[in-house]
């Protein structure tokens, strides 16, 4: 198994921490992982993206420009990354704020209304976990128990009481993700 993923959106959406939780979950099941952020003079409201690779074998390059899965959370990222999905790959996006929807015919496209769902759940902070749930429904590359173990690893202990809430958000994401084409 090898999965090369780009997660891209606005700073403050939890893009980097979602990638970190995914990478942590991979370690929990003895996978090799890399997490490579775009870093720069960026801030809340600017763009943020991270490349996460999970693999059964040693990972050579942490830098790739074609992805198995793109998780896209704003229009700028759609413009930048739709074309980088490998043929036969997967694109997951939140339609919130998207004006130009993806048009590629050679990839599987899924929609997840995570921003809307987070509002319904009255907790904007679980947005990224809803998205993660959607991804894991389509690509179950890490087991749920390892995601929870990964959450425990990546969160300081004082936040561990929030884990059930995150778990619920992941499960909700699994329910609401829908295939478009």
């Amino acid at each position: 198994m090898k999965e090369e993923i780009i997660i891209a959106g606005f700073g403050g959406q939890g893009v980097l921490s979602m990638g970190k939780i995914l990478a942590c979950s991979g370690i929990m099941q003895d996978q090799e992982v890399t997490w490579m952020p775009s870093y720069g003079p960026e801030m809340r409201g600017g763009t943020a993206n991270v490349t996460v690779i999970l693999s059964d074998d040693r990972i050579s390059s942490p830098i790739v420009n074609a992805y198995d899965t793109a998780i896209i959370l704003n229009q700028q990222s759609m413009d930048k990354f739709e074309q980088t999905v490998k043929p036969g790959g997967t694109l997951i996006y939140d339609p919130n704020g998207i004006t130009k929807h993806p048009t590629r015919k050679d990839i599987s496209i899924y929609k997840i209304a995570a921003a809307e769902e987070a509002v319904k759940m009255k907790n904007a902070k679980v947005f990224n976990m809803i998205v993660l749930g959607g991804f894991l429904k389509i690509k179950p590359i890490v087991k749920m128990e390892n995601v929870i173990a990964g959450l425990k690893k990546s969160l300081p202990e004082r936040y561990h009481h929030l884990i059930p809430m995150n778990e619920e958000a992941i499960e909700q994401g699994m329910k609401i993700v829908e295939k478009i084409s």
């Binding site: 970190k20 990478a23 370690i27 090799e32 992982v33 890399t34 997490w35 490579m36 952020p37 870093y39 942490p62 830098i63």
Partner: peptide, 10 residues
Amino acid sequence: DGIIGQMMEK
């Protein structure tokens, strides 16, 4: 360099 410094790995 900035890649190895900023990247997370196991």
